[in-house]
Amino acid sequence: MVELYILLIFMIVGAIIAIEVKDLLSSVVAVGAVGLALSIVFLVLKAPDVAITQLVVELLCLIILIRATLKRDLPFSTSGRWFLNTMITIGFIIVLLLVAAKSFTDLPPFGFPIMRVASHYLNNGLSQTGASNIVSAVILDYRAYDTLGEATVLFTAVIGVLAIVRRIGRKKVGEKVKEEDE
């Protein structure tokens, strides 16, 4: 599993670059590098469905973020209580790391999961649903309620974006509105 460690360290370095660089466009491109490395990590961990989805979602996310950052200034302000804020943040993160590292000892070790539910899916999935892709069988047959909730969340997000972007104002009498102004 050496390649897994190399990819994870690459992701951490990319995240540090994305956080600390001063140019917004460079930051967004560094996040794109982290996402593409994450796609390869999914492929190494034997999850091809998730890898394909992560790859294409990352591309669309990158396009949207670049659209938001083009031709914008970056007012970089370090004023205020710089030292105090940084210390409080680092203290919070250290507490989080300690608690999580202590609770990780209760997890099963890496590579040996508890598969009580999943073994049922793997043994009976083909005969009960007829789909040879078990992940597809889980999301659309065994646990289709999750997918219905996901569709609701996506619908709400689309409604939210369309409502935020909309131009506020009343139409005058007889005024024709073009489609791109709506």
Binding site: V57, P113, A118, V135, V153
Partner: peptide, 25 residues
């Protein structure tokens, strides 16, 4: 490997894209 967390993550990724678009808007 366990197919159940993969199915959960598959929906989570698309929701993440939608919420990112909402934040950008």
């Amino acid at each position: 490997v366990d197919p159940l967390p993969q199915a959960l993550v598959l929906t989570s990724i698309v929701i993440g894209l939608a919420t990112t678009a909402l934040l950008v808007a």
